[in-house]
C-alpha cells in the first residue's frame, strides 16, 4: 500500500483510509479490554528455528531451484536478481528492526497516546518512495492505469480495514510481525506462517484481486474475515472482563 501511494496510485489512498478505519476499530477493542495473554520466553532453539529455516529456503533457491515450482506468467513470475533482493532485504530488515518500524503503530499511537514518532517513519517511507519515483519517472498520479491495481474503492477500503483491525489485535502490522519473527518471537512466526497460508488460499481459491478488479470469492472472504475478527475481539474482551471481575 505504501509503495503504491509512493507511485501515485490513488486507489491505495482509498486503501489507506480503510487501513486507518480498521486501526480505529482495533483501538476500540483495546480500550474495551482486548489483550493477548502474556507471552513467555522460549528456548534458544525455538527462537532461531524460523530464521534458520529462511536461510535453508535461500540455499535451496540458489542451489537446487529445480525442486521448486515457479510462476511462468503474471506478476508472480517477475523478480529481481537474488543478490539485489537479498541485499535490499538485509538493509531494510535491519533498519526496520532498529527503528521498530510499524505502519499500524504509527496511526495507533498517534490516536491513543498522541505519540507521533512511528507515524513520522510511516510518512517518511511514503515520502521517500514519491521522491524516488519522481526521479526515475515512475510517478503517475491517478486512479486509472496503475500497475496491477483496480479501482474498486469499496473493496480496497474494506480489505485494508480488515488488515488494520487484525493488525492492531496482533500487536503489529504484517511487516512488524516479519521483523519480530526474525527476532525470535515465535508468536510472530505463527502469524507470518498464517499470512503465507492466507496468501496461498487467495491465489488458489480465486480470492485474489487483479488489475481487472476484485473477485466475488474475495468479497466473501473479506466479509468472513471481518466477522471472525469481530468475534475474536468480542470473545477476548468478554473473557478478560470476566477474569477481572472474578
Amino acid at each position: 500500500m505504501m509503495l503504491r501511494i509512493g507511485g501515485g496510485d490513488l486507489n491505495a489512498v482509498i486503501g489507506l483510509v480503510g487501513f486507518a478505519l480498521g486501526i480505529g476499530c482495533g483501538i476500540i477493542a483495546l480500550n474495551q479490554g482486548f489483550s493477548l495473554d502474556r507471552a513467555y520466553k522460549v528456548t534458544t532453539g525455538e527462537a532461531y528455528a524460523f530464521p534458520i529455516m529462511q536461510v535453508v529456503f535461500l540455499v535451496v533457491l540458489v542451489a537446487v531451484p529445480t525442486i521448486l515450482m515457479f510462476s511462468t506468467e503474471g506478476p508472480g513470475s517477475m523478480h529481481a536478481p537474488i543478490i539485489i533482493s537479498l541485499a535490499a532485504g538485509l538493509i531494510v530488515g535491519a533498519l526496520c528492526q532498529k527503528t521498530r518500524f510499524c505502519t499500524v503503530a504509527g496511526i495507533r499511537d498517534s490516536i491513543m497516546f498522541k505519540d507521533f514518532t512511528l507515524l513520522i517513519g510511516f510518512a517518511s517511507l511514503i515520502g521517500a518512495c514519491i521522491v524516488m519515483n519522481l526521479i526515475v519517472g515512475k510517478f503517475h498520479l491517478g486512479f486509472e492505469g496503475q500497475p496491477i491495481a483496480h479501482s474498486d474503492g469499496v473493496w480496497n477500503c474494506l480489505g485494508m480495514l480488515l488488515v488494520g483491525f487484525a493488525s492492531v489485535l496482533l500487536g503489529g502490522c504484517p511487516l512488524r510481525q516479519l521483523i519480530l519473527s526474525g527476532e525470535g518471537n515465535v508468536d510472530s512466526v505463527v502469524t507470518v506462517i498464517g499470512m503465507t497460508v492466507g496468501a496461498a488460499f487467495c491465489h488458489n481459491f480465486g480470492l485474489a484481486s487483479s488489475g481487472e478488479g476484485s473477485t466475488p470469492n474475495g468479497h466473501i472472504a473479506v466479509i468472513l474475515g471481518l466477522i471472525v475478527t469481530v468475534v475474536i475481539a468480542c470473545v477476548n474482551i468478554a473473557s478478560n472482563k470476566k477474569k477481572a471481575g472474578a
Partner: peptide, 11 residues
C-alpha cells in the same frame, strides 16, 4: 507488563 504485546505496556 512483562510478556505483554504492544501496545499493552503503554496502555
Amino acid at each position: 507488563a512483562r510478556g505483554c504485546a504492544c501496545p499493552q505496556p503503554v496502555l
